[in-house]
């Protein structure tokens, strides 16, 4: 799939599309665009073999701002276009750019099915917990009681946990990163690219205008370490200002305890191949889950889950007895002029 030697080597500068970027000043999208551009040249693809496909929303303007092939499609449907493209052109590096409304409200159906099909594409889900482009309405990831123009008395709908939804639908790669963590974002994007299958990266993204407070606790330098736990394979889940806290498994439930209070054997060691634990991690921020554990759990950041699974397009091509290509005259001749019995 990937070219060992890039014949058309390109640099970050080559990725400038010349279009004026029209996101609001200080929007989290800028940081994401920057890190995507930063890592692309090192992935080994030719510039013309990279495609960004987006839906509708602020984040979906992304393809216009990067000098690769790009397709700004319609609301919620980007995963379907990416599926059709990847199946027919498996050599391309295909990236879907989507938001919480695009992927989980109008595109919820496709989000489920792309996960279970598992084409080798990367999905960057910009989650700012609000509708930005339409001026601040509630989104499927907004917390309960969010006051917005459509929910002036507070929203009632409980939020979806995107990674839990994805894992429930059979995702083979589920990760979370934050637009403020530049290096972590870049590393997560690299890992997504390396994964053979659908790689979902949820990015907590700052909407300055309509949802400025949403990620206050994990943005603020004073509280960030208390509220984030970094996931690294084989490492225990320690967090806090001085890494003094641990996630301890007690009676099968994750609880926050002082690091030294967790017995060896109960300490949660991150294993991204463990689907059971990944499902719990994806629920850490769910108030109902926190209530059941009796702990205020931190936000897990990193690769929650990763599993080897033959990508959709590989299986499809494997079922063909002749490689995908134009129908041949011989095939048609045989079908259209059958021998008379």
């Amino acid at each position: 799939m990937r070219e060992e030697v890039s014949h058309h080597h390109f640099t970050v500068k080559d990725l400038d599309s010349g279009q004026e970027v029209r996101w609001c000043p200080a929007c989290g999208d800028y940081a994401i665009l920057k890190q995507v551009k930063n890592i692309l040249p090192e992935l080994g693809y030719s510039q013309e073999n990279i495609v960004f496909i987006s839906g509708i929303g602020c984040s979906s303007r992304f393809p216009y701002y990067i000098e690769t092939y790009g397709f700004h499609s319609i609301h919620g449907r980007a995963p379907t276009l990416a599926t059709g493209l990847k199946v027919t052109r498996p050599e391309l590096s295909v990236w879907v750019i989507t938001g919480d409304g695009d992927a989980l409200a109008i595109g919820g159906n496709h989000f489920l099915h792309v996960m279970r099909r598992n084409p080798d594409i990367n999905i960057l889900l910009f989650n700012n917990q609000i509708y930005g482009l339409t001026k601040g309405q509630v989104s499927p990831t907004s917390p309960v009681d969010q006051h917005t123009p459509t929910t002036p008395r507070g929203s009632i709908d409980r939020p979806l946990a995107p990674l839990a939804v994805a894992l429930g639908a059979g995702a083979t790669f589920a990760a979370r990163t934050i637009d403020r963590l530049q290096n972590h974002m870049a590393d997560t994007f690299r890992a997504a690219d390396r994964h053979r299958g659908t790689a979902l990266v949820e990015i907590y993204q700052h909407c300055v205008v309509f949802n400025d407070e949403a990620f206050q606790a994990i943005y603020d330098k004073n509280t960030r370490e208390e509220n984030i736990v970094l996931l690294e394979a084989g490492q225990p889940l320690f967090f806090g200002k001085n890494n003094e806290k641990a996630i301890c498994l007690e009676e099968g439930k994750p609880r926050v305890v002082a690091r030294n209070d967790c017995e060896t054997g109960r300490l949660w060691i991150h294993d991204p191949t463990d689907i059971g634990k990944a499902l719990l991690l994806a629920r850490f921020e769910d108030p109902a889950f926190q209530e059941s554990t009796g702990s205020e759990l931190p936000t897990p950041v990193g690769v929650l889950y990763q599993k080897e699974q033959t990508p959709y397009e590989v299986s499809i091509h494997g079922q063909l007895s002749r490689p995908y290509g134009p129908v041949t005259a011989e095939t048609l001749e045989r079908l259209m002029f059958p021998k008379k019995t």
């Binding site: 449907r77 059709g84 002749r322 129908v327 095939t331």
Partner: peptide, 20 residues
């Protein structure tokens, strides 16, 4: 025949894949 046919989750997805 070297033709690919796929069944999608709804007609919107079908036309989306066709567009891709």
């Amino acid at each position: 025949a070297g033709v690919i046919t796929i069944q999608m989750e709804d007609e919107i997805a079908a036309i989306g894949a066709v567009m891709g």
